[in-house]
Design a binder for these strands. Structure first.
Length: 783
DNA sequence: GCACTGAGATTACCC
DNA sequence: ACGGGTAATCTCAGTGCG
């Protein structure tokens, strides 16, 4: 018997002769990996009896039944909250998930229950919520050594009661393994059914890089070597790029076809696809860095090269294009490039993992989702999990997901901007507008008063214009959840202020703050999402209506006090900077709106066109702030974006368009003379659905069909890169895959009149300089 | 047959 | 597979003209 401390990394469930039990994987305080088995927690669900059947009949029905669930351990009646109602629920606990499932079926079939609650939550998740364990945090428990079995790596313990979290900070030393694979076909994309894996490169946190390269037609040996190498290194974290969708499924199928074994989990099992489409490896956290890249919206085309570049990670080699891999492999001279490329990718994935892990762990702890799941899970599911955890603590039942009817509702206000160049402007922002409104008006599905119910103004908020009413007390689920999120964030902020922090401690806190912010800001959208367990359109609609009212009041107050309003969107107002007037406005807001509005960005100059949601400013710190313009849009060519950025820069710094116009004319001239690389002309667009579902023949769709003809695999979400050539009339005829276009085929005139000129004219138009003037202008560029 | 027009499709952005 | 609001481009069918 010993007191065991461990950092919770992964967990699973297993049915053994002891019934269902929880397996916790972690790192102890001596950096050893441990398995802690908890047999003290059994799966359960709640049955809500029909009004005419007393709870006792449910217990009786279970006891009298002959099959399967005779082992129902207990059933007890509890009072629980469900959408603001108090319901009597029968808690049914079984020794195993299988018998619980059978018991649920039995009850449904007998027609004794109104609703069964909790059978759409996995046993292992239920365990975390119920017992209060926190992934990626330290725990403590009394445990005894469990006999090691050959299938287990590491030290196994049996805990005598459920472990509990302790206030022990820090992240243990984790063993990380990153891998990158190369597979190719003679033509097009490789298919696991026929094309072997040729290279597997592995980079580990002990700074070693190792590659395995196929020496014959079979990949049996390299998969085996990879698996052995992995088992020997025994990583806590295994990272890849696109590994959920491609890397692992491919390796798994290849292993199966070549007869190799890929039993790389800490139970000696193969990786498998699990919830949210993530690939799980028992006992290890399997992470896909593509999921993390999706948290970085500035990266438009999600490749490992781009992710590495944006994080400042140097790649000392890159792999050839997919379609050129076979050629490279078959050339003795070029073949080493594949190894070097794969090595470089594995290294980059390792470094990416090291950089982004803290955020993942922060998100994991906050939402109570295991590290490997949280990265892959969509925002809605993360909020879902966070709310489940909160709801548990407040005695709510967890409503099952249901099919909800989608109803559109009115959202935020966006003002038409005053077009032109403005000096000394400050953007004022409401601090967490929607979360605060949800807290202030107690907006929640469980506080929503039904239309038939009586409720006077002293006990209810009535939302102007909508008529929805919300009880002022008790606090609803959203108010509690958001209040606690805001409290956590303030606590973290305080921590960050601490002078004595080390860099790494500060970084951890910053990532925690980021995680809290993500979840806080997602709650409003979650409330209006039909997939949410706590979906309530009335809640989201009310928050939006209150938001409109708040921003309108600020705008009106500005007008009354003589502050020019240049633009406003949702929760921000752009006004001319007048220290005294603005300060008095801020005071007025905090005194009258029960909310805070804060100066956010300060502009020396800011330019608005007629369009909403698009502007460009020069901040007082000298940097450019470009919003919504072509510069920040991935579906415009690099050349158009570069020229527009320079035009913006010149206009804002000069305060006049003269130099910018000369520059633009010059840039167009250069382009017309072919002084541009094809690289700068690629236009990237996403495929959002399968090709055959497109109803109009857009350029990127046509090009995608060419990709397919070349044998490339495409799935929704893939980015199609194309360049417009001279051949053809319609744009979709002229567009060709970017990798097949040579510079002499480029339709330069399209890029002039369809890309660069419009992008430049968008800015210069504010000063009366038209696109035609740029296209046919008589003014010659400077010598 | 051709230029023009407006509706619809499509995507990526803002907050 | 978190919400609504928005700009912009291109296709495509319909229309008027000659």
């Amino acid at each position: 018997m010993k007191n065991l401390r461990f950092f919770l990394l992964d967990l699973g469930e297993k049915t053994t002769p002891h019934g269902s039990e929880i397996w916790l994987w972690g790192i102890d305080d001596h950096d050893r990996n441990v398995l802690v088995v908890d047999r003290s927690f059994k799966p359960y669900l709640y049955a809500i009896p029909k009004e005419d059947s007393p709870p006792a009949t449910i217990s009786a029905a279970l006891r009298s039944s002959k099959t399967g669930y005779a082992d129902a351990l207990e059933s007890s009646v509890e009072e629980k909250k469900l959408f603001g109602q108090i319901v009597k629920a029968v808690k049914i606990t079984c020794t195993s998930t299988e018998t619980l499932e059978a018991a649920a079926k039995h009850l449904s079939k007998r027609g004794l229950v109104q609703q069964i609650i909790g059978n759409d939550i996995r046993y292992s998740s239920l365990y975390l919520y119920d017992r209060g364990l926190i992934p990626c945090k330290w725990h403590e428990t009394e445990a005894e050594t469990l006999g090691t079995s050959p299938a287990l790596t590491g030290n196994a313990y049996l805990s005598h009661s459920s472990p509990h979290p302790i206030a022990f900070k820090g992240i243990p030393r984790l063993r990380i393994l990153a891998f990158s694979t190369v597979a190719f076909a003679e033509k097009g994309s490789p298919h696991a059914s026929q094309d072997p894996v040729s290279v597997i490169s592995v980079a580990t946190s002990d700074a070693k890089v190792r590659s395995f390269s196929r020496s014959n037609e079979s990949d049996h040996d390299i998969i085996t070597d990879f698996a052995n190498y992995l088992m020997e290194f025994d990583p806590d974290i295994v990272a890849g790029f696109e590994s959920n969708r491609i890397g692992w499924p491919y390796l798994i199928e290849r292993a199966q076809r070549s007869g190799a074994t890929l039993g790389i989990s800490r139970l000696g099992l193969q990786p498998h696809t699990s919830v949210y489409g993530h690939v799980s490896i028992a006992g290890r956290a399997s992470l896909d860095m593509l999921d993390y890249a999706n948290e970085l919206p500035d990266i438009k085309v999600k490749t490992i090269e781009n992710v590495a570049e944006s994080l400042g990670i140097k790649l000392n080699a890159i792999l050839p294009d997919q379609l050129d891999l076979a050629k490279t492999w078959n050339s003795p001279q070029d073949k080493p490039l594949l190894l070097r490329g794969a090595d470089a990718y594995a290294r980059a994935i390792l470094e990416t993992t090291e950089r982004l892990l803290e955020f993942g762990m922060a998100l994991s702890s906050l939402t109570c989702m295991p590290l490997d799941q949280v990265a892959t899970a969509a925002v809605g599911h993360r909020v879902d999990s966070y709310l489940i955890k909160e709801a548990y603590q407040q005695g709510h039942l967890i409503p099952p997901r249901r099919d909800q009817v989608y109803e559109r509702y009115q959202g935020a206000i966006v003002l038409a901007p005053h077009a032109g160049l403005h000096e000394n402007v400050v953007a004022l922002d409401f601090a967490s507008m929607y979360p605060n409104l949800m807290i202030l008006y107690n907006l929640s599905p469980d506080t929503l008063v039904s239309p038939t119910e009586d409720c006077d103004d002293s006990s209810c908020w009535t939302i102007e214009g909508l008529g929805f009413r919300f009880r002022k007390t008790p606090p609803g689920l959203y108010r509690n959840a958001l209040t606690s999120l805001i409290a956590i964030r303030n606590e973290i902020k305080k921590g960050i202020q601490t002078k004595s922090l080390s860099d790494s401690e500060r970084r951890v806190l910053q990532q925690q703050e980021r995680a809290v912010k993500v979840i806080t800001n997602a709650c409003y959208g979650y409330a209006g999402w039909t997939g949410a367990r706590w979906y309530a359109r009335e809640v989201a609609e009310s928050a939006a209506a209150l938001g409109r009212k708040s921003i309108t009041q600020v705008i009106d107050r500005c007008k009354e006090t003589g502050i020019p309003v240049i633009y406003a969107d949702t929760d921000s107002v752009f006004v001319t900077r007048d220290e005294a007037k603005v300060n008095s406005l801020l005071r007025w807001v905090s005194e009258n709106l029960r909310m805070e509005i804060r100066p956010d960005k300060n502009y020396r100059r800011v330019l608005f066109t007629e369009a909403k949601k698009r502007y460009a400013g020069l901040l007082t710190d000298g940097t450019l702030d470009i919003v919504g313009m072509e510069v920040v849009r991935s579906d415009w060519s690099e050349i158009a974006r570069k020229v527009q950025e320079r035009v913006i820069d010149l206009v804002l710094r000069d305060g006049s368009p003269n130099n910018a116009k000369i520059y633009a004319l010059n840039a167009i001239d250069q382009l017309r003379h072919g002084k541009t690389t094809v690289r700068d002309l690629i236009i990237w667009r996403s495929l959002t659905k399968p090709i055959e579902e497109y109803r109009v023949n857009a350029p990127h769709v046509q090009v995608a069909k060419e990709y397919l003809k070349l044998g490339r695999k495409l799935v929704p979400g893939d980015k199609i890169g194309y360049v417009v050539t001279k051949k053809g009339t319609k744009l979709y005829d002229k567009a060709r895959p970017y990798f097949e276009v040579t510079s002499d085929e480029v339709d330069t005139e399209y890029y002039v009149s369809g890309q660069v000129a419009p992008a430049a004219a968008r800015i210069l138009g504010v000063f009366g300089i038209s696109q035609d003037e740029l296209l046919f202008g008589t003014q010659r560029p400077l010598p």
